[in-house]
Structures are given as C-alpha cells and as structure tokens.
C-alpha cells in the first residue's frame, strides 16, 4: 500500500471518530457553539505544533495563500453545512448531497493540476463517492 494512502486512511479514521464526538457535543450544545470550540481546539493544536515544529516561513506567495484559504474554505464549508441542516433540509438528503464534494475536487484537480487517473483509480474514486452517499442515507 502506498504511504500516502496509509495517511489518507489515517485521516478518514480520525475524521470518522469526530462524527461520534460531534454528535455527543451537539446533543448538549448548539452546533454554532460546538463549532466555536472546535475552532479553539484547532488553535490549541496549532500552538502545540508551533512549540515542537520548526516551521519554515519562507514560502512562495501562492502556497501561503492556498494554505490560509484552505482553513477559511473548510471552516466556511462546515458553517454552511450547519446552515443547510438548520434551514429545513432533511439530514439524510443534505449529508448525502454534500458527500458529492470530492467529485468537484476530482474535476478541479484534473482540470487545473493536470492530475491523471488510471481506469482503476477512476473506478476507485467514483466507488468511494458512491459509498459515502450510501452511508449517509438512512434505511
């Protein structure tokens, strides 16, 4: 198994656990308050990273902009997903619809980064998206 796939699976395991802890949080506090403390935890984690990791700050401007934009886009996405659920969307429909987001990443990465997928990888990526949609559907 390639090393990048090991890290990708590690990410999905950690993010998967957050699905449970998030539910335990929003059973007791609002999604907005939960999001606020989620962000504070990110700040705390970054403080620890800053203590132990020597960050190289001589970065190319596009890289710097992309990394900072990443945080803003991901955070805003979490916020809009809460808004979708609070605006009357059925959870199973909203979450399965949102599960389509990797499809956009695939299109953008192939178009702008000229990434090339083999037939097996294309089948794997599409199967993964279909799986994520099915998992988010109840019943």
């Amino acid at each position: 198994m390639p090393i990048w796939l090991t890290f990708a699976i590690l990410a999905l395991v950690f993010w998967g656990i957050t699905g449970v802890t998030q539910k335990l949080a929003t059973n007791r506090i609002t999604s907005e308050r939960s999001f606020l403390w989620f962000c504070w935890a990110m700040v705390a984690l970054s403080a620890v990273v800053l203590l132990f990791h020597h960050a190289g700050w001589k970065l190319a401007t596009p890289v710097l902009i992309a990394a900072i934009a990443g945080g803003a886009l991901n955070g805003l996405g979490a916020w809009t997903s809460f808004r979708a659920l609070e605006s009357g969307g059925k959870a199973s429909i909203v979450i399965s619809l949102i599960s389509l987001y990797p499809l956009l990443t695939v299109v953008l990465a192939v178009t702008f980064l000229h990434e090339h997928l083999t037939l097996t990888q294309t089948a794997g990526a599409l199967t993964a998206i279909a799986a994520a949609i099915l998992i988010s559907l109840e019943g």
């Binding site: 993010w15 699905g19 599960s99 987001y101 695939v106 799986a131 994520a132």
Partner: peptide
Amino acid sequence: GAASIVAPVTALFPMV
C-alpha cells in the same frame, strides 16, 4: 497522493 484520489478516500470518513 493526488488530490483527485485523496479527497474521495478521506471523504469515506462516515464509514468509521
């Protein structure tokens, strides 16, 4: 890891 593969794999997190 290519973004076009890593994104769909990590989006499988609801399975966990």
